[in-house]
Nucleic acid binder design. Structure first.
Lengths: 242, 242
DNA sequence: CGACCCCTTGACATGCATCAAAGGGAGTGG
DNA sequence: CCACTCCCTTTGATGCATGTCAAGGGGTCG
């Protein structure tokens, strides 16, 4: 999938021309490659939105009236506990959908990690497309299953792994989702704070775990938002099977 | 749903006559109440199995060739990490399905927490039923969504909560799934070890958290497998919003 | 009655959180 | 072009929640 790869790379380097919109056609990383084609049918009634860094797209509990597709940038889905702590359930990368499952209210708040461009569709027209197109239904079930697997995996990592293992898992997962190869620069758009809240630890512990990996030459950190994975095998060994 | 309640109670008291099979018709706690009715169509080709305590029903990685329905008893779905630690992803209670999602291999090992009776259907006939019945599809999507929500919730609990909070969440969830009321005896079929592996902590920490709740008169522990929730509000306050 | 298993409690150890302070890097104004 | 400031990251010092190790208790089954 060379096209997908180049799409990921374009994102890595923050090169977003007006033309990159076309990437959405085939860069869906979780489902089969043609879901985006069906979504194009909704294009006439879709809305394009931009959000600046840390801007809130919708809040936990809001009615889920639209389905969103991330065109560029990174989104975080998070919940805020009563004691003020924040938990990040997932990051959403370009090409992925938000709010496509059948919940009437959003279970998470969605915020822009980086500047974000979204395409959104009214729930009603989206549902009509789903009802009329078996292939779309199949895609959505696949997506739902993939999300379930990811959530189960995340629970596993949070429940049974140490700080270093969690960070290793996180890097491997991010590399997988961005189609980044070993030795390449891996884009890490989220802050240390975001990573900490995603992995259930503190900023400081994230830093220390990264420092440990760096000192072992497993990763190189040219700057705080780009990593190079020198030894993926070692990362996998640390992450065990996550 | 008094019938469902009595089903739960029958389970609580380990009273399983041959007749309780009829309960499966309406006690599905996660989907709409009529999914079991459709499954009855598969009854002729279904298989009934019994498993003793701690017996393995299938292993992580096995091909998913059958769909299971728990008739009685409690099942645990778990993974074993390379370092020997065990993580329990979920417990499956009577009336619930296992292996209905579209994965070719089982992501978890399934073991009997208590003596278990299962009904199972060949994947092929199950898929045929799904393909031919839109209502079943809708039910399964609901189940999938509910499972996703549960997994997200579990990740939240594991990532952002203390030992006491996790135990409180666990008790509330169990009470909710068994339709147990405050003041009633809540059946806790799983061992402290199971609870620990489900909540990402050790047996001892589970015991201490329970002891703390007991000392505050929030729960009473008549015996190690039955609890009485004296103060559900206090439990909720401890669990925050889990 | 004894043996086994699980649960419970205590004493100690440790990984991670917390508190504190010192480095960068990017944008801004001089 | 440099200096300033702000924010994020990194590292160090200390404390606490939970893990680990150990011993005793209670129920169940043979």
């Amino acid at each position: 999938m060379p096209m997908t790869l180049s799409a990921a790379r374009a994102h890595s380097q923050n090169v977003f021309s007006g033309r990159h919109v076309h990437l959405e056609i085939d860069d869906d990383q979780r489902g089969a490659p043609s879901l985006a084609l069906y979504l194009r049918q909704l294009h006439p009634s879709s809305t394009r939105q931009h959000f600046g860094r840390n801007e809130v797209m919708f809040q936990e509990g809001d009615r889920a009236e639209r389905v969103y597709r991330v065109i560029s940038g990174t989104v975080r889905l998070c919940r805020h506990a009563a004691n003020g702590t924040r938990h990040i359930a997932d990051f959403v990368l370009p090409g992925e959908l938000i709010g496509f499952d059948e919940r009437t209210t959003h279970p998470f708040t969605a915020e822009a990690v980086t500047p974000v461009t979204l395409l959104s569709y009214a729930r009603s027209s989206f549902d009509r497309l789903v009802a009329s197109t078996p292939a779309v239904r199949a895609h959505l079930v696949s997506l739902l299953t993939a999300n379930l697997r990811a959530a189960e995996q995340q629970a596993f990592v949070l429940g049974a792994h140490t700080a270093k293992q969690r960070v290793a898992s996180f890097l491997l997962r991010l590399a997988g989702r961005e189609d980044a190869m070993a030795g390449e620069r891996l884009d890490v758009p989220m802050s240390r704070n975001d990573i900490a809240d995603y992995l259930g630890m503190t900023i400081e512990t994230v830093c220390r775990a990264l420092a440990a990996l760096r000192d072992e030459n497993i990763v190189t950190v040219p700057n705080s938002h780009q990593f190079i994975l020198n030894d993926v095998a070692a990362l996998r060994a640390i992450a065990v099977d996550a």
